[in-house]
């Protein structure tokens, strides 16, 4: 059988294409160009915004395959995995990548089993081995202590999830053209043994540390719960989200959705600031792909300075008030 084209699995919410999906197109475009094949975006939903579909083309796709059905309105593992697997079996792409979001990391393992192929999780780098066309998949493992490079030489399609925010979307190019095709799948595969009863938006607006461009995190160095407010204030001044070390969460200064690190979330913001966080291996594992890291800690030996692009070794209780004041002055 011949396998051709690079696919990206796009995501939508309420019919709007998510930003991570535009980022993923950048990766897909790079791979498709190297392979000299088409880049196809796959999108599942109920009624997807037409402009968003066109934007998938403007931002890199040659073709968009849309599957609309009421059972695909929002993510449910079974109909999503079945639909993606059936499209793969119909068209035989050589590569399919998805964002390593809660959706991507849930649906792709099931798709890989249905297609009996390999899947590499949470890649931070993807490339093509020119002689073979193999996808070179690089990802951190063992708590970020190593980088493993993985290939899927004998199975197709090659599948990977890609760490969100580990690259930027392409600037939309309105001169790009491509087909938007609406496909139907067999109703029988859209059945779900799971029903979504409700959705509770996290009331803490600063909790979405995975999608934020700026994450300001606090740790044990803040000494007590009241002091954690200083972190929230700085995050608000920078329009950022609030992160926390495991210790800070265990002490209940912040809730679990804020936790950064191996037993919390991995973040890749444009800017990460660690305040009063020593930088355990587990914490560092969660931030290593952040674009810029700043650390404030009184201990010059703190591990966090190893990964910092800019660091201030000083008492955070002296630094934060000065920083807050200067940021406030800039805001005005």
């Amino acid at each position: 059988m011949s396998y051709k084209d690079v696919w990206v699995l796009s995501e939508q919410e309420d019919g709007k294409i998510k930003l991570v999906s535009y980022e993923l197109l950048t990766r897909g475009r790079f791979l498709a160009d190297k392979r000299n094949v088409k880049l196809v975006a796959i999108i599942l939903g109920k009624s997807i915004d037409k402009e968003g579909l066109q934007e998938l083309i403007y931002r890199g796709a040659n073709k968009v395959i849309v599957i609309e059905d009421t059972s695909l309105e929002y993510f449910l593992p079974e109909p999503y995995a079945n639909t993606v697997a059936s499209l793969i079996q119909k068209y035989n792409p050589e590569i399919i990548i998805a964002s390593a979001t809660t959706t991507g990391r849930t649906v792709m393992p099931a798709v890989a089993i249905k297609c009996i192929t390999g899947l590499t999780a949470d890649c931070t780098d993807l490339d093509i081995e020119e002689e073979t066309g193999n996808l070179i998949q690089t990802r951190p493992a063992i708590g970020g202590n190593i980088l493993a490079t993985i290939m899927t030489p004998k199975y197709r399609p090659q599948m990977a999830t890609v760490r969100p925010h580990s690259n930027k979307p392409l600037v939309p190019d309105n001169s790009r053209t491509g087909d938007i095709i609406y496909e139907k799948v067999d109703k029988s595969i859209l059945k779900s043994r799971i029903k979504k009863l409700d959705f509770k938006i996290n009331q803490e607006e600063d909790a979405n540390i995975q999608d934020a461009d700026v994450v300001i995190s606090g740790g044990k160095g803040l000494k007590k719960e009241e002091n954690f407010q200083m972190i929230r204030n700085i995050a608000a001044l920078l329009d950022g989200a609030v992160g926390a070390s495991r210790e800070a969460v265990d002490l209940k200064w912040a809730t679990y959705p804020h936790q950064v690190g191996l037993s919390g979330k991995t973040v890749s913001p444009k800017f990460y600031m660690a305040v009063g966080i020593s930088g355990s291996v587990q914490h560092l594992a969660g931030i290593k792909t952040a674009e810029n890291i700043v650390a404030i800690n009184s201990d010059p030996e703190a591990q966090i300075f190893q990964v910092a692009d800019y660091g201030i070794v000083a008492d955070l209780f002296e630094v934060l008030p000065v920083l807050t004041k200067k940021l406030e002055a800039l805001k005005q």
Partner: peptide
């Protein structure tokens, strides 16, 4: 196992 670890490097 479809996947092969082909290289381990130190970040």
């Amino acid at each position: 196992s479809p996947t092969r670890v082909v290289k381990i490097s130190k970040p």
